[in-house]
């Protein structure tokens, strides 16, 4: 699957776009991200799967595009 990272999340993952092995659902993805990038534990962000926000644990089909979307506050 493909991961797109935005804002401060991209700073912590070190890349704006990267591939990773398929992960079955959004909760597992959160866990994987927190373990792989410990600094993300402190950061709130939303997850979109194939351009739809995942509000509850959501299945991620193989080969999906997932986006990690933190809020911005600057004006």
């Amino acid at each position: 699957m493909k991961i797109l990272a935005f804002g401060i999340v991209a700073e912590k993952t070190g890349a704006k776009e990267f591939a990773c092995e398929d992960i079955p659902d959004s909760d597992s993805l959160y866990l994987w991200l927190r373990n792989t990038y410990p600094e993300l534990r402190k950061i709130k962000f939303s997850i979109a799967i194939n351009r739809k926000l995942a509000q509850v644990n959501t299945k991620i089909d193989d080969g999906s595009e997932v986006a990690l979307l933190p809020p911005f506050s600057g004006g």
């Binding site: 797109l4 935005f6 704006k16 979109a48 351009r51 739809k52 926000l53 995942a54 509000q55 986006a67 979307l69």
Partner: peptide, 22 residues
């Protein structure tokens, strides 16, 4: 919907907002 714009790349990204029960 929410639209993201990255000036550096440059690139747009748009995603659908599903209502959140919270």
């Amino acid at each position: 919907k929410i639209l993201f714009y990255d000036l550096k790349s440059p690139a747009f990204y748009e995603t659908e907002i599903i209502s959140n029960p919270l």
